[in-house]
Structure formats: C-alpha cells, structure tokens
C-alpha cells in the first residue's frame, strides 16, 4: 500500500485534483502552480503543518482508544449475557439495539447521536466515542460468543472434573483457544473502527482527515497531507495488530 502511494507520488501527483477546487477555474490554475516539489519539501519542514496533523492524530487516537475499550467491554458483557443466559430481559433489547445500529452507516449513527440524541449539547469527542463503542460492540459480541462457544462444553466439564473452578476453566482452557481463533477477526474489526473514527470530522471534530483540510488551507495542496495521513493510518493499523498479538502472546500463549 505504501509502495502504491509512493509510486503515485512519483508519477501522478501533479494531476491530483485539489479537494474542493472547481475544475477549470482560475483558482485551479493557481493551485497547479503551487504544486511544485520545492513547495512540498518546504511544507514538510514547516512545524505548523505537523502541529495541525499531530493535533488530528491525537484526536483520532483518543477516539479510537476509548471507543475500542468501550466496544470491547460492552461486547464482552453482551457475550457473557448471551452465553450464560443471564439477564435475558436486558440482553434482548440491548442485542436488538446493537445489531440494528450496526446496519446503519457509522457516520449516520455518529451524526444521529450528536445532533439528535445529545442535540449538540455534548462534547463531540465523547459523542464519537459513545457512537463508535455501540457501533462496534455488536460485531465484537458476535465474534466473542461464536469463538467461545466453539470450544466444546466437554472441555469445561473435563476441567471441572479435575477440580478447576469455572473461572479457571475459562482462563486456562476456553479463552486461550477462543482468543487464538478470534484474533484475525478481532483485529480486523478494530481496524474498521479505526477507519470509522474519520467520520468524527462530520461532527466538527478536528481528527486526522479533518486536519488534511486545515493543512491545505494554510500551507500546501491536498496531496502531501493526504499522503502523510494515509501513512499515519497505516502505521496505526500496524500498531493495533502488533499490540493485540503481543497481549495475546503475553496472556494466553503457552507453546
């Protein structure tokens, strides 16, 4: 992916249309003058541009981290209710709600939460976190549930017959196997959530994507910040996969 972007940089960057510019207008002609290597290199060393980008990165990371923790906790609680058949009265409506909202585009959900439910009265970052937590929890619940149930009941019985408690059976027998098999799907779901943070811009949050617009307004064309932001997303995705695999290896891996 990085290779494709770099190739694009070398051969096709000059032809990139500027976001928001009207084709054939005099403004477009001015922009094409500005698209010069020298100008781009200058922009690269401009602290102001990086400040804007890092500001966006900080917002994206905060939204992602808290929303991920929220989604994992909510997903785990729902999966526990689904497997143990406890609190069925609460599980049914919650399950219906998270499953239904998952069929709505996450950007619509985020706007719905911001403009309708909280009516603009709540901090946009908090609303993004809540909306994304709810949005991802439904699919995480299904991932958790399916992979936990996949480990046969017989193994839990064998563990109990050996004198282990139910908690120990889950800790040492069920979860190591369930987590190992759910890992690729789980990481993929978190990456989806990372990409969905880019919709925070729709509710007036200065996230990574929104910072591209800010940089363009003040410093350079669209291409350079877009390239940098894409690379940042790639690095974040890579870090997520690395971190989750590390946690798995430290917690559950025996062999």
């Amino acid at each position: 992916m990085v290779g494709v972007l770099l190739a694009f940089t070398c051969f096709g960057w000059a032809g990139t249309p500027d976001l928001g510019s009207s084709a054939g207008s005099s403004e477009g002609a001015v922009n094409s003058d500005v698209l010069k290597w020298g100008h781009m290199v200058n922009s690269l060393f401009s602290w102001g541009m990086w400040k804007i980008l890092f500001g966006g990165l900080k917002t994206t990371v905060i939204i992602f981290l808290f929303a991920a923790v929220g989604a994992i906790l909510l997903g785990a609680v729902l999966a526990y209710m689904a497997i143990s058949h406890k609190c069925a009265w609460l599980f049914k409506p919650l399950n219906w709600f998270v499953t239904t909202v998952h069929d709505i585009p996450s950007v619509a959900l985020m706007m719905f939460f911001y403009y309708v439910i909280f009516a603009g009265g709540m901090n946009g970052i908090l609303v993004s976190i809540i909306a994304l937590s709810v949005y991802t929890s439904g699919s995480l619940m299904k991932i958790f549930k399916v992979h936990i149930l996949q480990v046969g009941k017989g193994q839990i019985e064998a563990g109990l017959a050996l004198g282990l408690t139910k908690g120990q059976c889950y800790r040492y027998i069920v979860l190591p196997q369930a987590v190992k098999s759910m890992l690729p799907l789980f990481v993929a779901e978190l990456k989806v959530q990372l990409r969905a943070t880019s919709y925070a811009g729709y509710i007036a949050q200065e996230d990574l994507i929104k910072s591209v617009y800010s940089v363009r307004e003040h410093y350079t064309d669209t291409f350079l910040p877009l390239l940098l932001v894409s690379i940042m997303y790639l690095i974040l995705s890579w870090l997520i996969a690395k971190f989750i695999n590390l946690v798995y290896a430290k917690t559950f891996k025996y062999d």
Binding site: Q155, L162, G163, D255
Partner: peptide, 19 residues
Amino acid sequence: NLFPHLSVLHNLTLAPMTV
C-alpha cells in the same frame, strides 16, 4: 475431552498447578 491447545504434558500439569 483433552485440551487441544496444550501438549500432553501440559494437559497433565494444568490441574496440579492451578488446583
């Protein structure tokens, strides 16, 4: 009902170590 993620030896040592 052996534990498939553990070796034969670990299948046998799990309960003595945890219980």
